[in-house]
Amino acid sequence: MSSKIKFISIFCFFVFCFFIFFQSLKESKKYTPKALMDKKIINFKMKQLDSDEIITEKDIFEINKITLLNIWSSWCLPCREEHKYLTELKMNTRLNMVGINYKDKKKNAQNFLSEFGNPYSLILVDDDGKNSINFGAYGVPETFIYNSKKKLIKKIVGPIDLKTFNEIKNILK
């Protein structure tokens, strides 16, 4: 009798393991931490790309607008892919777009913008990548969207694609 109970419980245990592994296989491996969501923007001090003026977190927000922070670099290929979406988003009057130029050379960055167009209202410089870490970014490209209360409402790791582009448009509605 007791061996039957043992058998059934061990059997159930392995069935449980099976479903865990099965579930885990189906889930995607992409990972965005929830830790940052709904948090207020961090304090920072960064230089602008075109001038030496120091910008802080207070300066980038505009009243009643949603703010999109986009980390990019001229040497990053996926940044070119997402550029068309950024250009399109520029048309939206409810959106304020700020770029963070990541580990780049000033000249290359400027060439990039003159070639593909400048979607940003303001560009900040992060030449050693420390500021991006402070934001909780993994690398380039990466996008943070803050509401008018300066709280993070969306984070996109990697380039913006059609799906995430539509999600951003929904936020702006």
Binding site: Y31, K103, D128, G129, K130, S132, I133, N134, Y138, G139
Partner: peptide, 23 residues
């Protein structure tokens, strides 16, 4: 190192790891 495959920040030479070392 979150963007690498199973490496520590110490071992990795990626951009992310190098910035984190500075931090």
């Amino acid at each position: 190192c979150l963007i690498c495959q199973g490496q520590s920040i110490y071992d990795s030479q990626s951009e992310f790891a190098n910035s984190l070392k500075k931090i």
